[in-house]
Design a binder for these strands. Structure first.
Lengths: 149, 149
DNA sequence: TTCTATGCAAAATGTTTGCAATCAC
DNA sequence: GTGATTGCAAACATTTTGCATAGAA
């Protein structure tokens, strides 16, 4: 049986002598209610729908705690914007991104998972993580048919 | 027999009604003399060693032309900084980055090259490109032995 | 001469930080 | 009370843009 993500976060706060504040509560709750991939800015606007008086720095700072506690993952899909997604209880996956509409699909590449260690070892690297992003055009955007420039 | 990269760039300029200026000349030459991965800022400082009066915007604008012409590649290795490398006459490769010292190794993952089309097709995507970055700690940094926090 | 390019300074972007006031425990 | 937290504004780093001047063809 697995812990609730909230619990994981609370325990992380306790363990590190950090306080549980209304802002942090609102941010985690909103974070967990929001599926998919979103920016800090988007999350902030969702949080403000219920708790209007939250500053961006608090959102950024709390997101950092969420990542450290293992509840959130921070993705860099190559847009210069950090995206966040649920991490706790989710298995590792990579992303396929539509370059027209931005739609994202998750997938797992078993072969890369297997192979990456081989490359790393070959060059004497101790692997910590990887990032695989495939870029393409999704079927809907292909139909809309703006030809690929 | 292959064209020289300079030639490719000059032809690109001509074809698009763009001028050949001393600045563009200095930037391409320096770009081609510089091996590896470097930022726009670094390239600018190399160019200025011989041609001191070059503005950053010109460097950025010219790098964009170099990428468009196929002479340069622009990489995003997850540092929020664009890195540039030689593209013309080089085959596609991915990168293995040391998270301590930043050292980069290039490799090719045949299996991903083969597999990526399968994933894309499965989700109805028409693939355009991919980005694979493996992060780890290189052998030298392992020896220096600052334990992985 | 005509259209493109340059360099500067200012804007834009997304994120981080300093700090005084405030809150959790 | 004491130390952690907040919100603001300012700082940041990187890249882009507007514009008047200068340059290529």
């Amino acid at each position: 049986m697995q812990k609730e993500p909230q619990t994981v976060f609370i325990e992380y706060l306790n363990k590190n002598g950090l306080n549980i504040t209304p802002q942090r509560r609102a941010i985690v709750e909103t974070f967990l209610e929001t599926e998919g991939h979103f920016t800090a800015e988007q999350l902030a606007s969702y949080v403000r729908e219920r708790t209007p008086e939250i500053g961006m720095s608090t959102v950024y700072r709390t997101l950092k705690l969420l990542v450290d506690s293992g509840v959130a993952d921070c993705l860099d899909l190559g847009n210069k914007v950090d995206l966040y997604e649920h991490a706790y209880g989710h298995t590792h996956h990579d992303h396929l991104v539509c370059t027209k509409c931005g739609k994202k699909v998750e997938f797992t590449c078993e072969c890369l998972e297997r192979q990456q260690g081989v490359f790393a070892a070959r060059h004497g690297y101790e692997l910590t993580r990887h990032r695989v992003v495939l870029y393409g055009i999704c079927s809907e955007c292909q139909e809309k048919g703006i030809p690929t420039a």
